[in-house]
Design a protein around this nucleic acid. Structure first.
Lengths: 199, 199
DNA sequence: CGCGGTATTGACCAGTTGGTCAGAATAATA
DNA sequence: TATTATTCTGACCAACTGGTCAATACCGCG
């Protein structure tokens, strides 16, 4: 059999891509060392050679997924709105669009969330990601509270950020389970109604 | 070895309880026919005798879980509030409390959601449950729109119900992954701020 | 009591899994 | 070309999986 010799970082990248493909197709529960190897066209021993154990492969897949997902990047379009409310709305809109545009990513993350409930090493990564997410929203919420102090009397920026994160992830659940009943425009309109009408 | 003979429905119930215990401890991915049998103190063949296949055991566990979880029951306390806003708030509060009170249930449901993304038979059950959930909220949202037509100009009852469901489930994710940073009171206060101050 | 149906069991099977290991193919170096 | 370090492979293993099956212990019924 022909053998190719490839620099380590490329092999690892190739294996991670194969792992991603398998995980998308079969789910993380259906991800096996041999399945990944087959997808990558190499022997299963080589996968173990580069990643040691399956557990580490899964963890590195999660890292790879997190690193490759441009989450909550505040684009110029979003930043250009003068009012905090408009920026918040644009940001929510953008995140919803991303969820819809990358359904496999969303599904995979959902699986990792579930796994995280039981596996500390996964949970810590997800937890850090949630914190990143919350932080991004917290900034905009602080501005919102400053600009309209009377509108949200009982609320804090932390609480509002948490609500925004909850909402996005709850949408992710509904969108993957029940795409038919999930109408992002309608949901966005409802949120717009809740935080007050935009100009 | 001693054998006990038990009426069918009791045996099934016993096995389902054992399956629940195993699923809580090991996750659905770690649920095996033999593990359930061990937990129930019977042979693994008997589990298969009563449920035919593992797949059906898992599905019936989900049904059992859904049937045994009193979700979104509108108590007298909640119904007694005259204003729709107060009832909504009380309902959200009640659901949040339930999520915190039954963390194992919440974790298990999270796993089933993730599984539902790939398994149609699970998805249809989860989807129906989501619809039940949405319906319960829709009623109260319709009242809210009627009582305060100017407050949520662009919103529909469907949209608002979906947002409420999203929010609850997003909270479930954050609460199971990141219980330390999850402060339900603060989140509730933020929502209260969003939908306007209560009387 | 004996008898028939059925709940229950242990033995068994084929397939898959993660993981190890000795050794072969490759590339770099001397 | 010979040496050496590293990547890569096939064969192998023990553990576990879901599932089948014949045999058996139990029960109600005659």
């Amino acid at each position: 059999m022909r053998r190719k010799r490839i620099p380590e970082h490329l092999r690892r990248e190739q294996i991670l891509q194969a792992a991603f493909a398998v995980a998308c197709r079969e789910g993380i529960g259906g991800l096996t060392v041999r399945g990944v190897a087959l997808e990558a066209g190499i022997s299963h021993t080589l996968v173990l050679f580069h990643f040691g154990r399956k557990k580490r492969l899964v963890l590195e897949l999660l890292d790879w997924l997190i690193a490759g997902t441009a989450v909550l990047h505040i684009s110029e379009d979003v930043a250009s709105f003068p009012h905090a409310r408009d920026r918040l709305h644009a940001l929510l809109h953008q995140e919803m669009a991303r969820l819809a545009r990358q359904p496999e990513h969303t599904r995979l993350f959902l699986e990792f969330w579930a796994l995280g409930a039981r596996h500390g090493e996964i949970r810590s990564r997800i937890s850090a990601e949630l914190e990143r997410y919350r932080t991004a929203f917290r900034a905009i919420m602080e501005e919102l509270l400053l600009s309209e102090p009377s509108a949200f009397v009982t609320a804090t920026a932390d609480g509002l950020a948490g609500v925004a994160v909850s909402w996005i992830h709850g949408c992710a659940v509904q969108a993957t389970i029940d795409p038919v009943h999930f109408d992002s425009d309608e949901y966005l309109a409802a949120v717009r109604g809740m935080i007050g009408q935009l100009g």
